[in-house]
Structure formats: C-alpha cells, structure tokens
Lab assay of single mutants.
Amino acid sequence: MTTFKLIINGKTLKGEITIEAVDAAEAEKIFKQYANDNGIDGEWTYDDATKTDTVTE
C-alpha cells in the first residue's frame, strides 16, 4: 500500500485527506467519490512525485 493525499481547494470546503491505496488509480477513484459526496466539482491535478491529487473549484 502507498500513501496518497488529496488537497481540497473548494469554495466552501478546504483541507486535505490522506489514504492508503494500492495505486494512483485506486486513490483517484476514492478521492473523486469523496469529492462527489461532498459536492466538490472542480479542476483535478495529480503530482506523481508527491502522490498528491489536488481539486480546485
């Protein structure tokens, strides 16, 4: 398992969460579901060097 981080730069929700996932694709799926569940819809970027997804509304 690898640690992945999501940075949220939303209009109403800001912060970050960290998860353990098998790979980047699994982490992205989990993060996008989390964002959807919390009403966050924005531009996504991924930095492989830091294993960090960022969503900005």
Rank of each mutant, 00 (worst) to 15 (best):
M1V: 06
M1H: 07
M1C: 15
M1D: 01
T2C: 15
T2R: 13
T2H: 12
T2D: 03
T3N: 02
T3F: 13
T3G: 01
T3P: 02
T3L: 12
T3R: 12
F4D: 01
F4S: 01
F4N: 01
F4I: 04
F4C: 11
F4E: 01
K5I: 13
K5N: 02
K5L: 09
K5G: 01
K5Q: 02
L6C: 14
L6K: 00
I7R: 03
I7L: 03
I7A: 01
I7D: 00
I8N: 00
N9C: 15
N9K: 09
N9V: 12
N9A: 07
G10M: 14
G10Y: 11
G10E: 01
G10K: 03
K11T: 10
K11Q: 10
K11M: 12
K11R: 11
K11Y: 12
K11C: 15
T12L: 09
T12D: 08
T12Y: 14
T12K: 10
T12S: 08
T12Q: 08
T12P: 01
T12H: 13
L13E: 04
L13F: 15
L13R: 04
L13D: 04
L13I: 13
K14E: 04
K14Y: 13
K14S: 08
K14A: 05
K14V: 10
K14H: 08
G15E: 09
G15R: 13
G15T: 14
G15F: 15
G15H: 13
E16F: 14
E16M: 13
E16A: 07
E16P: 02
E16S: 10
E16H: 09
E16Q: 11
E16V: 13
E16W: 14
I17R: 00
I17N: 00
I17P: 00
I17H: 02
I17A: 01
I17V: 07
T18W: 13
T18F: 12
T18Q: 06
T18N: 03
T18H: 08
T18P: 00
I19C: 15
I19E: 00
I19N: 00
E20V: 15
E20I: 14
E20G: 03
E20N: 07
E20L: 14
E20C: 15
E20A: 06
A21G: 03
A21D: 01
A21M: 05
A21L: 08
A21N: 03
V22Q: 10
D23T: 10
D23E: 02
D23C: 12
D23R: 02
D23Y: 07
A24P: 07
A24V: 09
A24L: 13
A24E: 05
A24Q: 11
A24G: 05
A25N: 09
A25K: 10
A25E: 12
A25F: 10
A25L: 11
A25Q: 12
E26F: 05
E26V: 05
E26C: 11
E26Y: 07
E26L: 03
E26G: 04
E26H: 09
A27T: 00
A27P: 00
A27M: 05
A27D: 00
A27W: 05
E28R: 15
E28L: 15
E28P: 02
E28G: 07
E28Y: 14
E28T: 10
K29Y: 06
K29L: 09
K29C: 13
K29F: 09
K29H: 05
K29N: 03
K29M: 10
K29D: 02
K29S: 06
K29P: 00
K29R: 14
I30T: 03
F31I: 03
F31G: 00
F31L: 03
F31N: 00
F31M: 06
K32H: 07
K32M: 08
K32D: 00
K32P: 00
Q33G: 03
Q33R: 11
Q33V: 07
Q33Y: 05
Y34E: 01
Y34F: 11
Y34V: 02
Y34D: 02
Y34H: 02
A35G: 02
A35E: 01
A35C: 15
A35W: 08
N36E: 13
N36H: 14
N36I: 14
D37V: 08
D37R: 07
D37K: 09
D37N: 07
D37M: 12
N38S: 10
N38K: 08
N38L: 15
N38T: 04
N38A: 11
N38I: 14
G39F: 09
G39E: 04
G39P: 03
G39I: 03
I40V: 07
I40F: 09
D41M: 13
D41P: 03
D41G: 06
D41F: 14
D41Q: 12
G42M: 08
G42E: 05
G42N: 03
E43F: 12
E43H: 10
W44D: 02
W44Y: 03
W44R: 02
W44M: 02
W44E: 02
T45R: 08
T45L: 09
T45F: 11
T45Q: 07
T45Y: 11
Y46K: 03
Y46L: 05
Y46M: 06
Y46G: 02
Y46Q: 01
Y46V: 04
D47F: 10
D47I: 12
D47M: 10
D47C: 14
D47W: 10
D48P: 14
D48H: 12
D48V: 12
D48N: 09
A49I: 11
A49L: 12
A49F: 10
A49H: 07
T50I: 06
T50P: 03
T50Q: 06
K51L: 09
K51N: 11
K51S: 05
K51C: 14
T52N: 03
T52S: 05
T52M: 04
T52H: 04
T52C: 12
T52R: 09
D53Q: 15
D53I: 15
D53A: 15
D53Y: 15
T54N: 04
T54K: 08
T54L: 07
T54P: 04
T54I: 11
T54F: 09
T54D: 03
V55P: 06
V55S: 07
V55R: 05
T56L: 05
T56C: 10
T56W: 08
E57S: 06
E57Y: 06
E57Q: 09
E57N: 06
E57A: 06
